[in-house]
Design a protein around this nucleic acid. Sequence first.
RNA 1: GGCGUCGUAGCCAAGUGGUAAGGCAAUGGUCUGCAACACCAGUAUCCGCCGGUUCAAAUCCGGCCGACGCCUCCA
Length: 469
Amino acid sequence: MKIYNTLTRQKEEFVPIEEGKVRMYVCGPTVYNYIHIGNARPMIMFDTVRRYFEYKGYEVNYVSNFTDVDDKIIKAAIEEGTDAHTISQRYIEECKKDMEAMNIKPATCNPLATREIDGMIRMISTLIEKGHAYAAEDGTVYFRTRSFKEYGKLSHKNLDDLQAGHREIKVTGDSTKEDDFDFVLWKPKKEGEPFWKSPWCDGRPGWHIECSVMAKHYLGDEIDIHAGGEDLIFPHHENEIAQSECCNDKTFARYWMHNGFLNIDNKKMSKSLGNFFTVREISEKYDLQVLRFFMLSAHYRSPLNFSAELMEASKNGLERILTAVERVREKAEKASGEMTDQEKSVIDQDMAALVRKYEEAMEDDFNTADAVSAIFELVKLMNTAVTDKSSGAFDRTLLEEVEKLCDILGIITEKKEELLDADIEEMIARRQEARKAKNFALADQIRDELAAKGILLKDTREGVKWTKA
RNA sequence: GGCGUCGUAGCCAAGUGGUAAGGCAAUGGUCUGCAACACCAGUAUCCGCCGGUUCAAAUCCGGCCGACGCCUCCA
């Protein structure tokens, strides 16, 4: 399996630290509001990575944090006249609902920054002892960036270039720093802010130290994969490496994976541009499976543009897959019989080739766009090869394979059991009678009425089917 | 100023040296009472532009144009 490693800027063969196991850390959201669709991209893509590893038989320890103390959370709390804890708890719960609707598997562990303060204090103390950090007079603790020789290895920057190429390295009058590039590990509390006691001052941790500590706590000093959005490469991930490697004297993460940004109209999504969507907003219009499928349509490292048209296209494409699976599932339930030689050859040749295509795509740095195309080709195979005459064994073999491959991508093929109101059931029955009597005018009229209520009918060989608009 | 990414049909998107996957949309046909689904058919002589390397390039090299990202909180 090949993974593109930001550290080396190359695809590398994945070799786990521990045979058969994957230790993976994904930077999670800061919970000060509903998550936006940009937050959803790493969640969906790295969940897919995890699913593929599990499919290959790995045991994955998947850790993803919630940053629950931060300026934005505090600001939101002040605006609402409540406390930071209330805000973060609320949005963690809402975030989990969104994740479930996107069929993202719960992480092995979702650590909270505020529950890991002791570990942070320990790590900061160690860094100070080793000379990699220092406390200023006001109690702020800084990391001594230049003390880590490899600083910049992930983002491929070097401090002197940054200094030379400085575009107004303004760094507000932080005169207590020894160097402009030093960053905060611990900062003093301000009036009304949550704080914890520490050897340096009452205060709270800097953002970067949180992830280093949580990764160490739940995954150990060395991890296999560390992932997140590409904007985190610098400075967040760079700083994590500095902290962790200076503290533990071990390589922090072997593989660094970063997803590209989700754009709107080719522009970065931002509140100021007014092109900002929360996952919750999208869920009002679409099943979030559609959002997931949309994200899978591009490689995770490419920028991806979001628009209503593309969501429509994704919805239709997903529908094609789901319709085909549904039809075969119903047919397979009834069909019996062993495979003919010809069917065996379709399975061994055609289906096997597509499964291979799918796996090769996934093993090549998780090329989900290609993997999806293999599923479409499998759908075509099902649509043509599963007929009245095909054997039950054949139908089920194809069905199970497609279900399995969809599941790796997190696409749910099982249709949710939904019930209709009695009056709608009655209308459908009346329309069937009208059709039997060849009273098509009445039948069409009823169909239009149902459509107005958001119920779309299809007459199939297996009977009347309905879907919600 | 430094470091990067991208430019493939109307749209999305894979392909990164051997002669253009897949999907959406649109068109014609088959099926269907009609519609929907499904199937069949054709659909980029060509991969931003200009040069170069090679038997062979969308794929490698150079230049240009265009879009974008990071360097500051940010998925």
